[in-house]
Design a protein around this nucleic acid. Sequence first.
DNA 1: AAAATTCCTATTAAGTAAATAGGAATTTGA
DNA 2: TCAAATTCCTATTTACTTAATAGGAATTTT
Lengths: 143, 143
Amino acid sequence: MLISTRGRYALRVLLDIASKEGDDFSSLKLIAQRQGISLKYLESIISQLQAAGIVYSHRGKNGGYKLTKSTDEILLIDVLLAAEGSLRPVQCPALDNRDCGNDNCPTKDLWVQLNNTIVNFFGDKTLSDLLKSDKINLECYAK
Amino acid sequence: MLISTRGRYALRVLLDIASKEGDDFSSLKLIAQRQGISLKYLESIISQLQAAGIVYSHRGKNGGYKLTKSTDEILLIDVLLAAEGSLRPVQCPALDNRDCGNDNCPTKDLWVQLNNTIVNFFGDKTLSDLLKSDKINLECYAK
DNA sequence: AAAATTCCTATTAAGTAAATAGGAATTTGA
DNA sequence: TCAAATTCCTATTTACTTAATAGGAATTTT
């Protein structure tokens, strides 16, 4: 599975924050309740989003999280890389610009191209693209 | 990881068989030795390739495996689906034409498009595409 | 009949993903 | 000032999947 729950949940958290539009910070507790995801798990995920500069936080009462940029400036590739750590689709040293010792490997190019395809797929999409549909239901029913 | 060792090893086995060109069956024992992969593990992988109609076998002494088709007729998508079982990049019911209950999910289209992108990537490539380079070293040095 | 192979079923080992747990630090508002 | 609400930090546990191993049965050739 290329994208695990961390990546999926990260998108849902950000979409949840984005949908709130106000001046207030969105508290994770409420997000967790709305999304039906454990607060503690979300904490560990959003801390990575914060480290990546996608959200910022405010502690204490009335604290929570906000997006650092508008939704059309937040690239999905950045969200997913932050949440997943890596999106490499296959274990091949070439994807990390490392050398496997076989310069004439018949599958190296294939894996590099696949990796590029995936990075490009998420590289030209933003959070706002996910919000464009006129009817949206942020609640996810699938586990 | 979208593609695990099963998928990678499946390709290597098939490329190994393809490179032998003779009338003889390729025995897994020799393939395993050449590729540095456990015989028992390869047995379980190639049995899936056989079930998918990609190779056929002959038992007993001088037995082994052959490709059922020429390399330009063997699609990588079929090899990988056979070896991996599934290539879905994310757990979303829509990828299996199932219903998650949320018709207005903001990420459903994204995942469907990603899935299509991956299927299309492997759907127009064949084993012979991997063998086109003039210099090829079938041995893989990476774990 | 022996050797070499595929075939079948089950089990184990290792690694990763998913979540849980407990409490410290910070901030706000009463 | 203090209690409540929040983020923050570190560690642990649980569940699941991948990867591999094991043993031997069935088949075919020489």
